[in-house]
């Protein structure tokens, strides 16, 4: 029995020595040395296992169990210690790894659409949701498409509304509006119903200044069908304007004149710069003109191939540059086509 007690005592000794040594370990990297010393092949507790053969047969199971318990105790003590040290190390690391978060990030360069394309995209999506399809028509037009088919025969006083760039080719001009596209779309579709928008560049003879451009983007809207009403024009354009300018946008239609629509109207939106109290942007009126519209004139329907006795429709045209200018309070309309990178990269 003495042999047994002696052996057990020795195991206890091994255990307490090892645990005492573990307490002394304070760095994660020293744990491995402790493991080798106290749980490794040549450690004391492993020595007990290897000396097992020399032991009394009856003692062997007992001793085996006791030695195993010691080994397990040491292993779990190691694990626990590992956890403690890892936590301490993490705490220390977290405490010391302090970045200056105010330093700038690594520059990532991103691409951008031109602001006019961005605004046009928003407009196209809104109309797209309402079932409108996008068409394109030429930027260089004949006098007929730009004027005559739009109910402005030669010398019609309304031609004065557009300052036109003519070309040296007889009867060819730079389109002053996207409205000639109405005729193209109608001729392509007659007598089918139409819901179309036509974005594009237009050109007018103006003196270049901070407020006026010779080239600018427009979007034309066209609906043709049977019994299309003024009320539907009003509803459609109001839906559009509220999606573009916000649910709460104040809107009004007032009488105007375009040769290719009758009745004709201008749509104004409450000034989004001053909120309607009056400012230089809205010329103290609280209103901004955003689009011209009206019921398609019978003459235009006829040129487009639709019998005005049967079909009706509405059209609208809006300038993109000017409304973008107002929205972002841009000081000079020429920025859009100057392509100054310092301007473009703000969008």
């Amino acid at each position: 029995m003495a042999e047994k007690e002696q052996a057990i005592e020795k195991l206890e000794q091994i255990k307490s020595t090892a645990l005492a040594a573990l307490v002394e370990v304070s760095r994660e990297e020293d744990l491995e040395a402790w493991r080798v010393a106290h749980l490794g092949r040549s450690s004391a507790v492993m020595g007990v296992f290897s000396s097992m053969g020399k032991m009394d047969k009856d003692l062997r199971p007992l001793m085996g169990k006791a030695a195993n318990e010691v080994r397990q105790a040491l292993e779990s003590a190691l694990e626990e210690k590992q956890g403690v040290l890892a936590e301490q190390a993490l705490k220390k690391a977290l405490a010391t790894e302090q970045l200056d978060v105010t330093l700038p990030g690594r520059p990532v360069t991103r691409g951008r659409l031109h602001p006019l394309t961005q605004v046009l995209g928003r407009i196209t999506r809104i109309f797209g949701d309402m079932g409108f399809q996008v068409y394109r028509s030429p930027e260089v037009e004949t006098d007929d498409y730009n004027f005559t088919y739009l109910n402005m025969p030669p010398y019609h006083p309304a031609r004065d509304m557009w300052d036109t760039f003519y070309t040296k080719t007889d009867g060819v001009l730079l389109r002053t509006h996207t409205s000639p596209g109405q005729i193209h779309v109608m001729r392509e579709h007659a007598p089918e119903p139409i819901r179309a928008i036509l974005p594009g560049a237009t050109m007018r003879y103006e003196q270049l200044s901070a407020r006026s451009e010779i080239e600018f983007a427009q979007v034309e809207v066209l609906v043709v069908g049977e019994k299309v009403t003024f009320a539907e024009m009003k509803g459609t354009l109001e839906d559009f304007a509220k999606r573009l300018f916000g649910e709460d946008a104040r809107l009004r239609l007032r009488a105007s004149h375009f040769p290719f629509t009758e009745p004709s109207a201008e749509m104004d939106v409450g000034c989004f710069v001053c909120g309607g109290t009056g400012c230089p942007v809205c010329k103290e009126t609280g209103w901004l003109e955003i689009l011209g519209c009206g019921m398609v004139h019978p003459v235009v329907l006829e040129y487009g191939g639709y019998d005005p006795e049967v079909y009706s429709g509405f059209a609208a045209g809006m300038g993109i540059d000017r409304s973008t200018l107002m929205r972002y309070r841009i000081d000079d309309i020429r920025h859009f086509r100057n392509n100054d990178i310092r301007f473009l990269k703000q969008f």
């Binding site: 309402m130 079932g131 399809q133 579709h189 089918e192 119903p193 139409i194 819901r195 609906v223 069908g225 049977e226 019994k227 299309v228 009403t229 003024f230 009320a231 539907e232 009003k234 509803g235 459609t236 109001e238 839906d239 009004r252 239609l253 007032r254 009488a255 109207a265």
Partner: peptide, 14 residues
């Protein structure tokens, strides 16, 4: 124009 109602399009989708 302010007294004319506003309606959504009545025509079938082209």
């Amino acid at each position: 124009y302010d007294r004319i109602p506003a309606r959504r399009l009545n025509q079938p989708l082209p």
